[in-house]
Design a protein around this nucleic acid. Structure first.
Lengths: 234, 234
DNA sequence: CAAGAATCAGCAACCAACCAGACAGGAGTT
DNA sequence: AACTCCTGTCTGGTTGGTTGCTGATTCTTG
């Protein structure tokens, strides 16, 4: 497998959602009922069963959407980055529906939100709002589809590598050598995102480290050379 | 695991995208450069590398988005149903970008398409268009996220069952007894969608059949009792 | 409509990957 | 200093991928 696989979605979405995000912020801030919220790491934004009535735009930080099962097991459905729109369920119908995901601040989060009704109103008033939100959602679709690619890899090693490249794209910051994923990730958190177990992730990350592909410092992963890593697919 | 997991996203999205789809059709048909296309089963709609300049609305049938690797391996990123919007990449920027997925008609397909520029224009002219497309894309996001849930199941049996329930939701039609998935699915196609192999799918479907959960007639699967099937999770 | 081609389903044997469970030592927190 | 959460490692045991082959369907084409 070649790098373009993960590289091409990134470049296109990366620029576009930043543009949409930047302008959308000021628009949503102006809506009636809008609010700017700061959420501490680990705090819940909404719970399954809560009424879905607000739309959110993540300005800063990362949000994890997950589903919790009766067994206590938890899986991650999406790790949202800056400029992501979420809570889109509330846009769907005029009627009240309930959240079915658990949204938690994965880092310290800065976000803005507004009632779905206000958003609908704003779109009616200014068509550019609709277009920008459309672009924001398109990015979400592309990101989610990339994640599906990641999850269809058969062996866990490829799956992990593919996931790390996704994280580089979404949360990577340049480091002295390579790119650092700016998230404090436990092995458990990674396992929950790619459908594996903590033990397996520990082993595979150990392998990658001893191969000299990456470094882990205080739960932050630095990939020395993403292109070289992408060659390490099965 | 309980049925609500797959049931809740379905109900909300099912109704909303039908509404959006119905009205959007007439609007998009009126755009300059729009066209109504009939595509035979197995024919390509767009290829990786094609310029992304049109937006599509699937009116009838199913479209498979996939990625092909150098190895010849192919994975399915999405199986789109009626009223799905796709080709959203073209909406992202004003600039030209290229498709990175392969879109193939999985059944005989009836779809309408229009240049992204016309769509942007239409949104500017009538804000309701933007809202409807937003709802359509929201459905896509929810569907894709359901698929991610499916793919994070660790054992293949659960993964297959979860996938079958997704297909029931998206392509199910009532049958004399139970629900028939109105797609001609080879075991290979299922494997490519859930990241498994043909052989495994054959075995697992055989198990489910001998348990009396389903019937397969000329590649069409009939689920006798979705609720009972959902209880068959690990 | 019939014959050949191509695709698909079913089966078996082998084996590697990875899950489960358990435990000890480390890092970070209060 | 006590505590919690996280990482690292080990030992079976099982799932599911791989390969190879056969017979059945379905599609194509004369």
């Amino acid at each position: 497998m070649s790098f373009p696989r993960t590289a091409s979605p990134s470049r296109t979405s990366g620029t576009a959602d930043a543009i949409a995000g930047g302008t959308l912020t000021t628009i949503i801030r102006g809506l009636s009922g809008s609010s700017l919220d700061l959420v501490e790491r680990g705090k819940t934004i909404f719970l399954p069963g809560d009424p879905a009535e607000r739309v959110y735009l993540l300005r800063c930080g990362a949000v994890r959407l997950s589903r919790v099962y009766e067994s206590g097991e938890e899986i991650t459905v999406a790790l949202l980055r800056e400029n992501s729109l979420f809570g889109v369920l509330s846009l769907l119908t005029g009627q009240h529906s309930d959240r079915f995901y658990h949204a938690v601040a994965f880092t310290r989060v800065e976000m803005i939100s507004a009632p779905a009704a206000s958003v609908r109103h704003a779109i009616a008033a200014d068509a550019r709002v609709g277009l920008m939100m459309l672009q924001g959602l398109s990015c979400r679709v592309l990101q989610t589809e990339t994640m599906i690619e990641t999850l269809t890899h058969r062996d866990m090693s490829s799956r992990l590598v593919s996931f790390l490249l996704v994280l580089c794209r979404d949360f990577g910051v340049p480091a002295e050598q390579g790119i650092t994923i700016d998230l404090r990730l436990s092995h458990q958190a990674i396992a929950e995102a790619i459908g594996s177990t903590r033990v397996t992730i520990t082993r595979l990350l150990g392998d990658l480290r001893s191969e000299g592909m990456l470094r882990i410092d205080r739960k932050k992963i630095t990939i020395f050379d993403p292109v070289a890593l992408s060659r390490r697919f099965s």
